[in-house]
Write a protein that binds this DNA or RNA. Structure first.
Length: 917
DNA sequence: ATACATACC
DNA sequence: TACTGGTATGTAT
């Protein structure tokens, strides 16, 4: 089905080296022998060279495809496709995949026993750590409407009910109903092929507005169970039922009772009619809809059976049934659901009893492992055709194989990839349902009949730019990178991008760039014309609109004297920090006026994050870091508060603003409190400048003003006496660190989160999960205070947090971080790690961060598990952990100034004077 | 930063 | 006749 606007990200296996020129590969060399004769998980037998293309064959991964005559279907597909340009291109791509596999097999052949053994040890360590991170406490639900678009069309056109039908066109189908699936007709299949498979197939053109409307209806229901649900597409979402269930336990029956009646737009008469029908229908379906539920048959109030009512229990299953029931009542469409301890599993589970069913995987390790054992890897979201094929080549088709071959996989695949595999093999997945992040790109593309005339190409390009500019305007976006996408009549795709020094948004601006890119391509091909079948334009590298105005020096500016304006990168960070500060100031001055532009960058933040349990005596260096950590934590807490508020606002599409009142005393309880009321918006620089007295950046000594701004609470302290000022800050900090639980627990919407910024630092952000972690851990380890630890020499070869971030510190604080044998404290869970092996420690940190943080950093919207990439890359780097900065990442990391902590001079007090040096 | 590839719906 | 469109992100260069 066509994805909604924000589809989730699944990382891919990717390779890029392809030395192909045009289409010379006519005779595909036979695929290497020994890996291609397996029966593929999709049932095709790959016969060398000739025969089925795994990428063309029927994908019967989805529900409703059981018991089909695959061979026959594939034969028709192949016959219909054969000889087409599309087919030829697929053949070519297939060969590329085969070559990759061949390479992989060669690599495999060269692996020595010793290497394997070493890998084995590594894998075991990671496995152990992953195991320790297992969290079975959340109840995650994945809901998925059944054959959504098709179901909507069938609902609205009863004639279609008994017919095989699909939504789409002769060129492409979005989805098909279950009747059609029996013929092998499925989503992403061209209509004309579907017609060959099922001549009676009715193809209905899509009505996206209608689907969107229905989607809005079901989302309203989702929100009742998890206001923070994450939609994957119009018809699909992840929900965290944990909190709902907790509350549900004490709900009276009346709150769990739902009527058999639709409150939709239908007339009363229709509704009555529908109601009668539905009662029957639901009863009919009850084996599925209400399976094994004692209270499951509809309860009729009144013997006439006019008003039917359903009471649902308090268990997860009952709650999910209730949700599905309500969906059905409201939309006359059915949904399926999966219940499991994490997203990855929930997703698989929702497929299990599709359509109109649900499946719960119990939250025990045993159940999970059993469930995983025979699960085909292809069923896991993120493992697509190519990954599957590569794994199949290694004789891995089920998740148990995956586990058995981990050491081999760790040698053949990138770290990202094998970690991902490992998580799958252990049945691990995200337990934190991430909010949607801001979009990162926007694009429009069109397929058409061959277009070879330059003028036509240019005018089409212009048209696309017009469309794009309109979309940009709607969303209030501006971006610096323009990408032109071209697909020629042979289905070969090219992208050409250009990044400008400034952000663009208007038609003319975009077109100016796109046109140049297009012209270059035309020239490169001349005298041959470009024979295009598709053109697209995309904009990325968004810049928040208020970036245009020059901003004040931020706190970081004076904390990092001289650095703030030196590089573009620093500048950029600087601005981001500025923004944060602005918002804090705005908060402080009580004029937080509601959501700033949706795509405002606000997440990046730098903070040192090595945290150590505080010993009885105060550490010297650590105090500074502690200061920063806490100061940032404090500010980010506010930030988190703000952005969750924004998010809320966006989600509810509310015009109502949610200002945050911060009280001077910084009592956490009060500062975290969100008061709903209206306030005039003010994200304006002048307000900030009028309220804040910043020490000058360059001088880093006293500013001209008579007050200093507290870096923790951002209030002005009316003094120039640093002792007084320091006293204030200390107080702020003690308030901030003294009651971490309040930060964490104050409000589910304002929970904090640890995060890693692009400079290898952790910051605090919105993240419910983190708070849970924090909360739990802190129950166990009372009176812990944040402090920095300097682990011993960074000996781990895998580039991870510490060896990258500690080096500067070591330089600055050579005495103190010689803390040999110092205990390593996980900065996330704050628990002592009984290891001094940084690799192991890093793995632990990974794990801790993994669920709630990493996937967010990756910008993922659902699964925290990032699918693998292909062959092992030399430098794993932390790029895979920090994709948000990925593009800027490498150079940035190199160029960016060391984290604030490394810039600081050590001193005994966590006071401000040291920052003014 | 750019180009390509994989993945999802 | 005829094989999408939108978004994210991993990997190599």
């Amino acid at each position: 089905m066509t994805a909604g606007r924000r589809s989730r990200s699944h990382a891919p296996l990717c390779t890029s080296h392809n030395g192909r020129t045009g289409r010379e590969i006519k005779q595909a060399s036979p695929a290497p022998s020994d890996f291609n004769e397996n029966r593929m998980a999709n049932g095709t037998v790959s016969t060398n060279g000739e025969g089925f293309l795994s990428r063309m064959a029927l994908n019967d991964n989805k529900a409703g495809m059981e018991g089909l005559d695959r061979d026959k279907i594939n034969k028709i597909i192949m016959e219909t496709s054969k000889g087409s340009r599309f087919y030829e291109n697929e053949l070519k791509r297939e060969q590329q995949v085969n070559q990759r596999i061949e390479k992989m097999m060669l690599q495999k052949a060269q692996i020595t026993e010793q290497q394997l053994k070493k890998a084995q040890a590594q894998v075991e360590r990671v496995a152990l750590e992953l195991e320790r991170s297992r969290d079975l406490s959340r109840v995650i639900v994945h809901v998925d409407m059944d054959a959504f678009y098709a179901a909507v069309e069938m609902r609205d056109c009863p004639e279609l009910k008994d017919k095989p039908m699909a939504v789409g066109s002769m060129n492409m189908l979005s989805t098909s109903n279950y009747h059609a699936r029996k013929y092998g007709v499925r989503a992403a299949m061209p209509g004309f092929i579907a017609k060959k498979l099922c001549p009676n197939l009715v193809i209905v053109p899509p009505n996206f507005d209608k689907y969107r409307a229905v989607s809005a209806e079901i989302r309203e229901i989702f929100a009742d169970y998890d206001p923070h649900f994450q939609s994957v597409s119009l018809d699909e979402a992840y929900l965290d039922f944990t909190d709902h269930l907790e509350q549900r336990q004490s709900w009276p029956e009346s709150s769990r009772t739902h009527r058999y009646s639709a409150t939709s737009s239908a007339s009363v008469e229709q509704q009555t009619e529908r109601l009668q029908e539905e009662v029957l229908e639901v009863k009919d379906l009850s084996p599925v809809l209400f399976e094994d539920s004692p209270s499951s048959s509809p309860r009729f109030l009144g013997s006439e059976g006019v008003i039917a009512v359903e009471v649902f229990g308090t268990s997860v299953e009952e709650a999910v049934k209730e949700m599905r029931f309500r969906i059905q009542q409201k939309t006359m469409l059915t949904a399926s659901a999966g219940i499991a301890p994490n997203q990855m599993l929930a997703k698989v589970c929702s497929d299990k009893n599709k359509p109109n069913g649900q499946f719960r995987l119990p939250s025990t390790r045993e159940a999970v492992m059993d469930f995983i054992q025979n699960l085909p890897v292809r069923k896991v979201s993120g493992i697509g055709k190519v990954s599957e094929k590569m794994l199949n080549a290694l004789e891995i088709s089920s998740c148990s194989h995956l586990g058995q071959q981990m050491s081999l996989l760790s040698l053949l695949f990138s770290e990202t990839a094998w970690h991902h595999f490992m998580q799958i093999s252990l049945g691990l997945g995200s337990t934190f349902i991430a909010r949607h992040e801001e979009r990162k790109s926007i694009s429009t593309e069109r397929t058409f009949k061959e277009l070879s005339k330059i003028e036509e190409q240019l005018s089409l390009c212009r048209e696309l730019c017009e469309d794009l500019a309109e979309d940009m305007k709607k969303e209030g976006l501006k971006g610096k990178t323009v990408t032109l996408k071209l697909k020629n009549v042979n289905f070969e795709v090219k992208t050409r991008a250009l990044t400008l020094a400034y952000a663009v948004a208007t038609v003319d601006e975009i077109f100016a760039v796109a046109r140049d890119l297009l012209k270059t391509e035309i020239e490169n091909e001349s005298p041959q014309p470009l024979r295009l079948r598709l053109m697209g334009v995309r904009i990325s590298a968004f810049v928040s609109l208020d970036d245009k105005k020059p901003l004040q020096k931020s706190i970081i500016g004076f904390l990092q004297p001289g650095k703030s304006d030196s590089t573009g990168i620093t500048q950029e960070m600087h601005q981001k920090l500025e923004k944060e500060q602005i918002s804090n100031h705005t908060i402080q001055t009580s004029c937080f006026g509601g959501p700033p532009p949706m795509h405002k960058c606000q997440k990046e933040e730098g903070i040192p994050w090595q945290i150590k349990q505080k010993g009885s005596e105060g550490g010297q260096i650590s105090d500074q870091q502690s200061f920063f950590q806490r100061a940032h934590a404090k500010r980010l807490q506010l930030l988190a508060e703000r952005s969750s508020t924004q998010d809320e606002g966006q989600r509810e599409n509310a015009s109502e603003m949610t200002p945050i009142n911060i009280h001077a005393e910084n009592s956490l309880e009060s500062s975290v409190k969100v008061h709903r009321s209206t306030a005039s918006g003010c994200f304006e620089n002048d307000i900030v400048s009028s309220t804040v007295a910043h020490p000058s950046t360059s001088g880093c000594s006293n500013s001209v003003s008579t007050s200093l701004t507290c870096p923790v609470c951002f209030r002005q302290v009316e003094t120039t006496d640093l002792n007084v000022f320091n006293g204030h800050i200390d107080q702020c900090l003690s308030t901030a660190s003294g009651k971490p639980n309040q930060i964490a627990l104050s409000d589910s919407e304002s929970d904090l989160d640890l995060d890693i910024d692009h400079k290898d630092c952790v910051v605090v952000k919105n993240c419910n999960k983190e708070c849970r972690v924090k909360e739990e851990k802190e129950k166990n380890s009372k009176d812990l205070e944040s402090k920095i630890v300097f682990p011993q020499e960074a000996q781990c070869s895998s580039k991870k947090y510490f060896d990258q971030m500690l080096l500067p510190n070591r330089g600055d604080n050579s005495t103190d971080d010689s803390d040999k044998g110092s205990i390593l404290i996980c900065p996330v869970c704050q628990l002592t790690q009984d290891t001094d092996d940084l690799t192991i420690f890093n793995h632990h940190v990974d794990l801790c961060l993994n669920q709630e943080v990493l996937h967010k950093l990756r910008g993922q919207t659902s699964s925290s598990i990032n699918p693998p990439s292909l062959l092992k890359s030399k430098a794993v780097d932390r790029a895979h952990l920090l994709p948000r900065q990925a593009s800027k990442g490498k150079s940035k990391r190199r160029d960016s100034p060391p984290s604030p902590c490394s810039k600081r001079v050590k001193g005994p007090h966590n006071t401000i004077d040291k920052f003014f040096r």
